[in-house]
Simulated assay, not measured.
Amino acid sequence: MICPPIYILWSFLGRLLPLVGQDSRISHEAGKYALWLIPGLFSLKLLTRFL
Results as ranks from 00 to 15, higher is better:
I6E: 02
L51P: 09
I38M: 06
T48N: 12
K32W: 09
P4F: 06
A30Y: 04
L46Q: 15
S43D: 10
W36S: 03
G14R: 03
E29D: 15
M1D: 11
R15I: 08
C3F: 13
L41K: 01
G14E: 00
L9N: 11
P5Y: 01
E29W: 15
S24H: 08
I8T: 13
L9E: 12
L47G: 05
S11L: 09
K45G: 07
F42S: 02
L44C: 14
L37G: 07
F42H: 05
G14L: 00
G40P: 03
I6H: 01
M1C: 11
L46K: 15
T48M: 14
F42R: 07
P18M: 03
L9A: 15
L47V: 11
K32D: 09
R15K: 14
K32Q: 07
P39E: 02
I6V: 14
S11K: 09
G21Y: 03
L13W: 00
L13A: 01
S27C: 05
P39W: 03
E29Q: 13
S11E: 13
R49S: 10
R15W: 13
R25D: 04
H28Y: 08
A30I: 08
I26L: 09
I26A: 04
G14I: 02
P18R: 01
A30P: 00
Y33F: 12
L16W: 04
L51A: 13
G14C: 03
I8R: 12
L17R: 00
F12L: 11
G40D: 10
Y7V: 13
G40Y: 14
T48Y: 15
I26C: 03
P39F: 00
V20G: 07
S43V: 15
A30K: 00
I8G: 07
G31D: 03
E29M: 10
L17V: 00
K45M: 09
M1G: 10
G14N: 00
I38G: 03
P4S: 05
L37C: 14
H28W: 08
F50I: 15
L44A: 11
H28S: 08
R15M: 08
P4K: 06
G21W: 07
T48W: 14
G21V: 01
R25G: 05
S43A: 12
L16P: 00
L35Y: 12
G40C: 10
I2K: 13
I6G: 05
I26T: 10
L16Q: 01
P39R: 05
R25W: 02
P5Q: 04
L17M: 05
L19D: 08
L13N: 01
I6K: 04
R25P: 02
S27V: 05
R49P: 00
F42W: 13
L41G: 02
P4C: 06
E29I: 13
L41D: 01
V20E: 06
P4N: 07
I6C: 05
W10C: 02
D23A: 04
L16F: 03
Y33L: 11
P4W: 06
R25K: 14
L19Y: 08
L47W: 12
L44T: 13
